[in-house]
Amino acid sequence: MEYLNFKLVISSVLYSVLGIIILMLSFFIIDKLTPGTLWKEIIVEHNVALAIMGAAFMIAVALIISSAIHG
């Protein structure tokens, strides 16, 4: 049990949840700033370019969040 530090496990889970919340919030903000609905354009209209742009945005924000958490 000395190898498992519960304080580190709890902080890792907390930072992960916080990062996911920030990522979803930033996607929601981008969705409101762009014309139309991103989800509808990607799912209904099958807009591949917009899906790639959304994926690139999420990867970029995830990298920023992870570097901010790790210091």
Score class of each variant (00 low, 15 high):
46 H>W: 05
13 V>R: 00
4 L>E: 00
1 M>C: 03
38 L>F: 06
55 A>Q: 09
3 Y>V: 01
31 D>S: 13
36 G>E: 07
35 P>Y: 04
25 L>T: 14
3 Y>H: 06
54 G>Y: 10
15 Y>E: 05
70 H>N: 03
26 S>C: 14
53 M>T: 11
57 F>L: 15
42 I>F: 13
7 K>C: 01
37 T>H: 12
38 L>S: 05
15 Y>F: 08
10 I>V: 14
63 L>P: 00
8 L>H: 06
65 I>V: 15
13 V>C: 03
35 P>I: 06
32 K>R: 15
46 H>N: 14
40 K>E: 14
65 I>Q: 05
16 S>G: 12
7 K>F: 02
52 I>V: 10
67 S>K: 12
12 S>F: 09
2 E>W: 00
49 A>Y: 08
28 F>T: 13
14 L>G: 09
41 E>W: 01
52 I>R: 04
39 W>L: 13
67 S>M: 06
51 A>W: 10
19 G>R: 05
67 S>A: 05
67 S>L: 09
64 I>F: 13
22 I>R: 03
39 W>M: 10
25 L>F: 14
30 I>F: 11
25 L>Y: 13
36 G>S: 08
21 I>K: 10
48 V>S: 06
59 I>S: 05
36 G>N: 12
66 S>N: 08
55 A>Y: 12
53 M>Y: 11
14 L>Y: 07
65 I>F: 04
40 K>I: 12
49 A>H: 05
23 L>Q: 09
23 L>F: 08
50 L>C: 03
60 A>T: 15
36 G>F: 05
63 L>A: 11
7 K>N: 09
15 Y>G: 00
39 W>Y: 11
34 T>L: 15
45 E>V: 07
68 A>M: 04
48 V>I: 12
66 S>D: 03
4 L>W: 06
3 Y>L: 09
71 G>C: 01
23 L>A: 14
6 F>Y: 04
5 N>H: 13
4 L>Y: 09
32 K>Y: 10
4 L>V: 12
24 M>L: 15
37 T>L: 08
20 I>L: 15
4 L>P: 01
36 G>Q: 08
21 I>T: 14
11 S>V: 12
26 S>E: 09
51 A>E: 10
60 A>H: 02
39 W>S: 14
40 K>S: 11
14 L>A: 13
12 S>Q: 08
53 M>A: 14
64 I>M: 10
26 S>D: 06
41 E>C: 06
62 A>I: 02
